[in-house]
Amino acid sequence: MISHYSMPFIRFVVAALTLMSFLTIAKRPEFQIELKNHLFFPSEIEIPENTKVKLIIYNRDQTPEEFDSFDLNREKVIFPEKKSVIFIGPLPQGRYEFFGEFNPNSAKGAILVTPQVPPQVSLHDIDNREFNEIGSTIAFQQNNLTESGVVYVD
């Protein structure tokens, strides 16, 4: 039986925990990758060492895929034309490989954990390649095959 005085306390605890969890999540840097024709774009992304990050994976294919990484201990199904979210890190420096479990020969990629702070990029719309500035810092890295981006949400 919950006493008369317990309810406000429980409400306070729930509210505090909810607020704390939102604050914690809000601080996580976000990284995005997408899957097209059973290939990951970008195939390599850089994340800062010892930092927990949020990874958003978009599946642009008509078939499901399972993001899998033994190095990262992560496994997540991404349904056709949907997105999935996972958290990774904090990790020491190194290369952490991932692959698409349903198409392991083509869908391959790696997370590079680097000491330096990676460029801060807003990647709002991958399809249209529109990159909007958040705050004062923005950078965009592009090579022939891949693009990499990170956005810090305050």
């Binding site: 914690t24 999540i25 996580r28 927990k52 949020k54 033994f70 201990n73 992560r74 496994e75 997540k76 979210v85 996972i86 958290f87 990774i88 890190g89 904090p90």
Partner: peptide, 26 residues
Amino acid sequence: TNLLLQIDELPIGNILWDSNNIVLEN
């Protein structure tokens, strides 16, 4: 626990060891 870790619902903490060089997980 692995599932809760990947959605940030359990404190991740540091990896204690990596025994992949003894028995590869995959």
